[in-house]
Design a protein around this nucleic acid. Sequence first.
DNA 1: TTTTGAGTTGTTCGA
DNA 2: GTCGAACAACTCAAA
Length: 475
Amino acid sequence: MATLLWFRSDLRLTDNPALAHALAVGESVYPLFIKEPEGENPWALGGASRWWLHYALEELDKALSSKGLRLIIREGDPQKVLDALVKETKATHLCWNRCYEPHAIKRDTELKRHFIQAGLDVSSFNANLLVEPPKVANKSGKPFQVYTPFWKHCLTLDWGSVASVSWKKQVIPSRWPKSDKLSTLGLLPKIRWDKGLKEAWDPSAQGLKKQLRHLKKIITSYSKDRDYPAIEGTSCLSPYLHFGQISPREIIAACGGASAMKKNQGAETYLKELFWREFAYHLLYHFPHTPKKPLRPAFEAFPWRQDKRQLKAWQAGQTGYPLVDAGMRQLYKTGWMHNRVRMVVGSFLVKNLLLDWQHGARWFWDTLVDADLASNTLGWQWVGGCGADAAPYFRVFNPITQSERFDEAGDYIRTYVPELAKLPDKFIHQPWLAPEEALEDAGVRLGETYPRPIVDAKESRQRALEAYQAIKKTP
DNA sequence: TTTTGAGTTGTTCGA
DNA sequence: GTCGAACAACTCAAA
């Protein structure tokens, strides 16, 4: 008699219902992580996410060890791996916390059927969402497609509470099946480009604790500070949340509970952000084609441009617009980008360059440590204007205005675009307007040390408005 | 069923 | 410099 406990996007020992269940069953518990073959999943982890996963797994193994357990790591097709382990451990129980990506739902449904047929007791739990998608619908029984009604509806629901986990000695197996070494998964880059990630992040439990302390400090001013990329006014919990090192229920508990949060404007805004994540999962669940296709079908005919050079310039942070370039370089260097800047670079790619939002989604997927299929899809379809509750077509962010408004002193730009650091504040947002002398004094040679703008903001805005106009006319 | 009010994050233009 | 309106129509959600 034994229980297989399969970890996936829930790499934690607290608020973990599957773990609580496994312990309650009371027999030997075998914690397991399976690295799936990448060929079959179009959304296999990007480089930055793999880097994070490595450390999250290392940390999970450490935490399990402190309880006398270990993390068994195997590589391969989940059904084959689980079949083998059922044999090796004589397991009678199999449990996990649910995932919500379309491919994961399909995989889990098949596995559940297979192992129930094989005579196992299979159970799954909700650990990672406050409201699970099948449980949320409007009065016509349909999924919400607008955030505010979704949020209002969620306020009437029970969000569950932090699952308590009680440890017992008898769950420690006397013999362990063999495990792959974490290093053999090859999650860390072979060419060590991860220096910037290392400097920016601590994926360990200690790092998470530090980030939670930071959240408590900034939360009351969250609603006003979160928009300024040079201020550390956001929680930076997204990667921990993505890999399930912390649950949304735990975050709310750490903030003093939902009712306390609703009484403070900063905290309430943050709570609503957590529900944007819920909304993203809700949409992905009900519209599983959206990572690949626009939710609004008219957009399938959108006249996107093709321009590899401009796409590369955007990716590399060489567009000639300092705020855009700062954001793209922050992303590449640290695996993360401030939310305000994500909107600015997104709008720039989609509207000013008129390149398909999917290029942006793919690049973010490969470079973000917090890459999350649900949130990434919602974000890009929002900025592309083709999703649920989309930005109106005429909402084209002006990369200069945004820069002046949200990075007035240019601190953020100077951090990530050091070749402009010596330019005075009044020229840093649009160096191409700086007089020769100012450029020379700052050591800037346009077209050499820093590019001239690859498009004209005003003209490209007009071009975007016309392209979006065209879409409206197609039925 | 029909109607009504509302909808994350902006920009520009003209008074 | 500041302010309000226009930018378009559509879809959703609820009364």
